[in-house]
Simulated assay, not measured.
Amino acid sequence: MQDIIKTALIQTPLVWEKPQVNRKVLRQKINELQRDTDLVVLPEMFTSGFTMNPETVAENMEGETMTWMREVAKENEIAITGSIVIREQGKYYNRLLFVYPDGKVEHYDKKHTFTLAGEDKVYDTGTKRLVVEYKGWKICPLICYDLRFPVWARNTENFDLLLFVANWPSPRIGSWDILLKARAVENLCYCIGVNRVGEDHNGHQYPGHSAVYDVLGRQMAFSQKEETLYATPDKEKITYYRDKLRFLDDRDEFQFL
């Protein structure tokens, strides 16, 4: 258990539907991380880009990427998270994997599939949120379009860190910036968003804007280029501001149906 969690946000281009190539590039980036890193966050669909052709890249939970994540996590003594395409019982999921240094895996299936791109017609949706506990931190990881739905991201479990992995394109990047900050403020938690950069197979441009916001919405890290960003959220600040402001005591009670 520790008060700070040093987090690395890998903002990178993705090679279209080439998992082996993307894993190779990401392994090099991860191997070059600062030695005291605790958690590495990769973009949404980090092995393929945001593809609507799941049959070309889909894996199962014992596939090559899952094996790769376990190996890299163990070698570097870090936790790794990001989403990939998973095929399970004949269905496809945009699934976030959270891999611990000891190889333990937890996962979250994207709840809000992106209808504008037809993701809802290709991928099944998740029904449950995930809150992982890592080094004394409660972390709620979500995926891209989930960012637009504050009820789904509401801090009902008193988590410390809200985390979004994404392929968020340039035309709507202003919304990404606003919503990441809003999710931090309304939930009195740290909020991390990791986006990709570059152009995908469909000609969509991705400008990065990966960022970290503290419990008051103050920006701790931000970038618009290919690079790895670092941030060290501090649990003492969460405790201080939640005790001082107590906004979460007044949150509405609700249940997901």
Rank of each mutant, 00 (worst) to 15 (best):
L162S: 11
R242S: 09
T239I: 13
K237H: 06
R70T: 12
Y213M: 12
F50M: 05
T37A: 02
T65P: 04
Y206T: 05
K237L: 12
W137N: 01
Q20M: 02
N155K: 07
V40I: 08
G103P: 12
V122T: 10
V212R: 05
G136E: 10
V57M: 10
M66Y: 04
N158C: 03
L39Y: 09
Y190R: 03
E133L: 03
D3T: 14
Y145S: 01
V57H: 11
K244I: 01
R148P: 02
I86N: 08
G208I: 12
K29H: 00
K138G: 10
L97I: 14
K128F: 02
Y241S: 03
A117L: 15
N22P: 13
Y93H: 12
N60T: 14
F50K: 11
E75M: 07
Y92C: 04
N22G: 05
H107M: 12
L96N: 14
C191H: 08
V25L: 15
N158P: 06
R183N: 08
G103E: 07
D36A: 02
L163H: 07
T239M: 11
T239R: 15
K121V: 00
T56P: 00
Q11R: 07
K181Y: 04
Y134E: 03
E186Y: 11
K104S: 14
F222Y: 15
G203T: 07
D120I: 04
G174L: 12
L248I: 06
W137T: 06
G103K: 11
E17K: 14
M66C: 08
I86A: 06
G193P: 13
I238Y: 07
L130N: 07
G203R: 08
Y123W: 03
Q255E: 12
R23V: 07
L161W: 05
Y241F: 13
V194K: 06
M220V: 02
V57F: 09
P19D: 10
K181S: 05
V194T: 14
G217H: 08
W168V: 02
L9Y: 14
V72L: 15
K111R: 05
T113E: 11
A8Y: 12
A79W: 09
V99R: 10
R129S: 12
G203D: 07
Y230D: 06
E133D: 11
T37I: 12
